[in-house]
Simulated assay, not measured.
Amino acid sequence: MYNPTVARLTYRAVLGRRRAAILFILPALLLVMAVAVRSFNGADDQIAASLLGGFGIAAMVPLIGVIAGTGAIGPEIDDGSIVYLLSKPLKRSSIIFTKLIVAIAVTMAFSAIPMLIAGFVLNGNGQQIAIAYTVAALVASIAYSAVFLLLGTVSRNAVVIGLIYAIVWESVFGSLVEGARTLSVQQWALALAEDIAGEGLVGSDVGLPLAIVLLASVTTLATWYAGRKLRVLKLAGEE
């Protein structure tokens, strides 16, 4: 299923000069804030949880997911270069699977690793906070990558739609409308963090069993539907 050639082309697209610059900004900002907070406040478990959750999980991870997920395929469809891949004797499900793996790898690298470092800087992993939020970032990276890869497959406005979901739905509606929290990748990921660090420091409105089911279901369905959409995508002159 995994194709090295497709992976190489996808990494080149996602980590292009412009996108790479954007990808580095958010992790760098998190680390700068972690150093500043530790310098001024010392090791504080609650502050560490608030920063990692309020900025890391709520903003950094979904935004990086948007960049990596949509960038894995959206630009190729927009500029027509996807024709190069579709004209090759490759299964279209293999193309989607490979691009998903690349999107997940990039999202994890630019979100989970900085999250772990920031957690240790903030309080030395006291109360398992660094580990808890790193696990949440890893799990969220998988779901976000699948969802935003699907968006890149079905819409030319994938980045805009992704930003609306990440910022408006998860951050705004997720904090104001109780029912919206159940349909939030952020809340599903926080359920795992809560199980590791404890309810006092991490809070989620979704129970762990339901969160696992929803994460697995959304990732699977988004990947399947992205593959289906790519299979029915016709090349110019193709019957």
Rank of each mutant, 00 (worst) to 15 (best):
A216T: 14
G162H: 08
R12I: 11
E76A: 14
V172E: 14
F55M: 04
P209I: 07
L31K: 06
T5V: 14
A189N: 01
L190H: 08
N123T: 06
I101Y: 12
G203R: 04
R181F: 12
R92S: 03
A34G: 11
A48L: 13
T5W: 14
V139P: 01
G174N: 11
L230K: 03
P27A: 07
F120M: 04
F55V: 03
G119C: 10
P209L: 04
Y84I: 13
V177G: 05
Y133C: 03
Y84K: 10
T70P: 04
I113V: 09
A49T: 02
L90E: 14
A7R: 00
D195I: 07
N157W: 12
W169D: 04
I25Y: 08
A140N: 05
V66A: 00
Y144W: 08
A222G: 05
Q127W: 15
E238K: 06
L201S: 02
T182L: 07
L208Y: 01
A166C: 02
S93I: 12
A112I: 09
G174S: 09
V106M: 05
L9S: 15
A216D: 13
L221S: 12
F40E: 15
F24V: 11
A72T: 12
L201C: 00
A193S: 09
T223R: 12
A105N: 13
S175E: 12
L26V: 03
V66N: 07
V139H: 06
S94F: 10
A21D: 12
G69S: 03
F120T: 10
T134Q: 08
V185A: 07
M115W: 13
D45E: 15
T219N: 08
S145T: 00
R181N: 09
R92C: 02
L85V: 15
I47H: 10
L230S: 05
A137T: 06
A112F: 12
L215F: 08
G65N: 05
G65D: 00
L151P: 02
A43V: 09
I25G: 02
L235D: 08
V121G: 06
S204R: 02
D205R: 10
V202A: 06
A36L: 15
L215N: 05
T153F: 03
F110V: 01
G162T: 06
S81I: 14
L151V: 04
I113W: 04
I161H: 04
S141A: 08
A137K: 07
V206C: 03
A191W: 04
S175A: 11
A43I: 01
L208F: 12
I117K: 09
I196S: 06
D44Q: 15
V172G: 12
V218L: 15
A58E: 10
R156G: 13
T98E: 02
Y144A: 07
I212D: 05
V121L: 10
V32G: 10
L215K: 00
Q127K: 15
Q186C: 00
L23F: 12
A136E: 00
A103F: 04
E194H: 09
S155E: 03
